[in-house]
């Protein structure tokens, strides 16, 4: 079965129905041939279950194994996986990045609360980025987190924003080191040397092309206001 993810045609055969169901919005029946195919074996699924030891069913592990394989193959198409919440406001995307448990999804929910229908959730957890003609775009994918918030669309990346918890809401530019570390810790690191080099190349281009901020934020809607203002003032 062919699917279109981040404008790439991927041929995927799932062993379990879960994956087929989750991919239903991304099915592709057009004329383009597939760019690559993804197959996950029972052995890989079992290894993933052993490694994670998290009681999720085999169907879920297949779903995640498929994505990992897809993300690594997609590097050849200037496509980079990023663990983040991608929020689109007025046709421009903001990527909120943080270690798990910091509150990416909660912060994204404040954007929806503050800006209402101006906000489109591109993907709340695992979107894909593509580097096209010197510009990064973020794409919705069906790997979209606990609350299944995603849209099958794309938007140009306006800014990246590293989140950390703080009593007060405060935003500033992230240092080169902070940005590099966070990006490399929130993407897939392929074992294959050539793919790893491509990952470093794309991550570097991302941070050279788009501004990266860091937001100290609390659990209030005001955090969204501070974040938005901080990323829209002092335009270059």
């Amino acid at each position: 079965m062919n699917y279109k993810v981040a404008d790439i045609i991927v041929d995927i055969e799932f062993n379990y129905k879960y994956g087929v169901k989750r991919m239903s919005d991304y099915r592709y029946e057009g004329d383009r041939p597939s760019d690559f195919s993804v197959r996950v074996t029972q052995q890989e699924i079992e290894e993933s279950m052993k490694r994670c030891n998290d009681n999720f069913p085999a169907s879920y592990h297949e779903w995640m194994c498929v994505y990992r394989s897809l993300c690594i193959k997609a590097l050849d198409y200037d496509c980079l996986f990023m663990h983040c919440s991608a929020v689109c406001l007025d046709s421009q995307a903001y990527l909120f990045i943080a270690a798990s448990g910091t509150g990416k999804s909660t912060h994204a929910s404040f954007w929806r609360e503050r800006f209402g229908e101006r906000v489109v959730m591109i993907n709340d957890d695992k979107p894909l980025l593509r580097y096209v003609d010197g510009k990064f775009y973020v794409y919705g994918t069906p790997w979209d987190g606990k609350h299944h918030l995603s849209t099958n669309t794309r938007a140009p990346v306006k800014a990246l924003c590293i989140l950390y918890r703080n009593d007060e809401n405060v935003i500033e530019r992230a240092s080169v080191g902070e940005a590099n570390f966070m990006i490399l810790n929130q993407t897939v690191r392929p074992e294959n040397a050539e793919k790893m080099e491509k990952t470093l190349y794309l991550a570097g281009k991302l941070l050279e092309s788009e501004p990266c901020y860091k937001l100290g934020c609390n659990m209030s809607v005001q955090a969204a206001e501070v974040a938005y203002k901080g990323m829209n003032e002092n335009e270059d």
Binding site: V176, G177, N180, L184, N185, E191, A193, M196, Y201, E208
Partner: peptide
């Protein structure tokens, strides 16, 4: 490799399983 004006070392291949830092 150089990334965004920093020199960064990462592990690949079998080494990646034992060293996942930067």
């Amino acid at each position: 490799r150089q990334m965004n004006s920093m020199n960064i070392v990462v592990a690949v291949g079998d080494r990646a399983a034992e060293f996942n830092g930067l």
